[in-house]
Amino acid sequence: MEKETLFIAFSTQKGGVGKTAFTVLMSSYLHYVKGLEIAVVDCDYPQHSIAEMRQRDMEQVMKDNYYKQLAYRQFSTIKRKAYPVEKSMPEDAIDVAENLIDGATIQPDIIFFDLPGTLNSRGVVKTLGGMDYIFSPVSADRVVMESTLKFATMLNENLISVGKSDIKGLYLIWNMVDGREKNELYDVYENVIGELGLNILKTFVPDTKRFRRELTSGHKPVFRSTLFPAHNSLLKGSNLIALADEILKTIKQ
């Protein structure tokens, strides 16, 4: 029996809360470290941030012997090519994903979708309805919280609970948490989230500048890249591994 490819989106209608960063970090960690077959459909029109990042990563590797050797050692060790990143319009994203599956030598375990940060973009709601799982980053900021809860409640009431989608689960993720520990404010918000019938993962992601560290000519350890996983020296305190483990448990991978 052929395995099922899961369609997953880190999605919200509020910009700047980490949906693209989570897509890249999870894709690279699961593909290069955990050994899952990953693909990405970048339908965040018009910026296509992940496709642009892949282009920057490739250019940096090709012109810099340090990164070129790093890429060669990685390929020699894990015997895995870079995961594909395909650009798409939001309304065409499912078709692009299906074509990726049909044309793949090894069927992907997961295809991640990076969608526009607004439900008003053409095709976004339809594509979200085709996801197996949706993870929505949220921070303890009133504007972000209200926007994310509105987004999640709309999907839950209009798609999930009435059976008008393929969505098996919708989960919020605490992102940009200030300090090492959550405080009482988060308990209040989590009570509100529970009362709305929504779910939130236990793992929280701290507010740290390392999430913006990409490939540079300075050869510093990289955290966010489409060609390499987050460097081991930067993982401590990021909760990235714990988040990946909880997501894998949630989607039963």
Rank of each mutant, 00 (worst) to 15 (best):
I8Y: 06
A9Q: 11
A9S: 15
A9P: 09
F10G: 02
F10N: 09
F10T: 09
S11L: 10
S11G: 13
S11K: 02
T12A: 08
T12D: 01
T12P: 04
Q13N: 04
K14E: 05
G15T: 08
G15F: 07
G16Y: 14
V17F: 02
V17Q: 03
V17G: 07
G18N: 02
G18M: 10
G18F: 05
G18T: 13
K19I: 12
T20A: 04
T20G: 00
A21Y: 08
F22A: 07
T23F: 09
V24M: 09
V24A: 01
L25H: 06
M26W: 04
M26E: 10
M26Y: 07
S27G: 05
S27I: 01
S28W: 13
S28E: 14
S28L: 15
Y29S: 11
L30C: 12
H31K: 12
Y32P: 07
Y32K: 05
K34V: 02
K34L: 11
G35Q: 03
G35M: 04
G35H: 08
L36T: 02
L36C: 04
L36A: 08
L36S: 07
E37V: 03
E37P: 00
I38T: 09
V40M: 11
V40I: 12
V40C: 14
V41W: 13
V41E: 05
D42E: 10
D42C: 08
C43Q: 11
C43P: 09
D44E: 15
D44M: 02
D44S: 05
Y45S: 14
P46T: 14
P46Q: 13
H48I: 06
S49H: 01
I50Q: 15
A51C: 06
A51T: 12
E52Q: 11
M53L: 15
M53S: 04
R54K: 07
Q55G: 06
Q55S: 11
Q55V: 03
R56V: 02
R56A: 03
D57F: 08
M58C: 10
M58E: 12
M58Q: 12
E59V: 01
Q60F: 05
V61H: 06
V61K: 09
V61R: 14
K63E: 08
K63Y: 06
K63M: 13
K63S: 09
K63N: 10
D64L: 08
N65W: 06
N65M: 11
N65T: 14
Y66E: 01
Y66A: 00
Y66D: 00
Y67A: 07
Y67V: 12
